[in-house]
């Protein structure tokens, strides 16, 4: 059985000094996933880095949830395009 590491939302919010409603908004837009155990919400540890990025967008750059959603999609596209460039570059190397 695989172990899943989780952090309680209220604990995470207290440590980062952010509103719980911010996490709820991210969940509603599908930007993060939350695991609920016995009515307590938890954030999977593998999402923390992404979540911290969203916190910086929202609290430091004043970007609203809709903006974060758009940026998130665009960054995913950038990642995909960068992967494609690597693949194409490697394909070109066949003919070098």
């Amino acid at each position: 059985m695989q172990t899943e590491y989780l952090i309680a939302i209220d604990e995470f919010c207290a440590k980062h000094e952010i509103d719980i409603s911010f996490i709820s908004s991210l969940k509603e837009t599908g930007l993060i996933e939350i695991t609920t155990i016995e009515e307590t919400g938890f954030i999977p540890v593998d999402q923390i880095q992404q979540l911290e990025k969203f916190i910086r967008f929202y609290y430091e750059l004043d970007i609203n949830i809709e903006g974060i959603e758009t940026i998130s999609h665009m960054l995913q596209r950038v990642d995909a395009l960068q992967d494609e460039i690597i693949q194409l570059t490697n394909r070109l190397r066949l003919y070098e």
């Binding site: 910086r56 430091e60 750059l61 004043d62 940026i71 960054l75």
Partner: peptide, 15 residues
């Protein structure tokens, strides 16, 4: 500052 930070923030300009 905010305008430029949004443009050059490392989270928005990976690598």
């Amino acid at each position: 500052y905010r305008k430029l930070a949004r443009k050059y923030h490392p989270d928005l300009n990976p690598n």
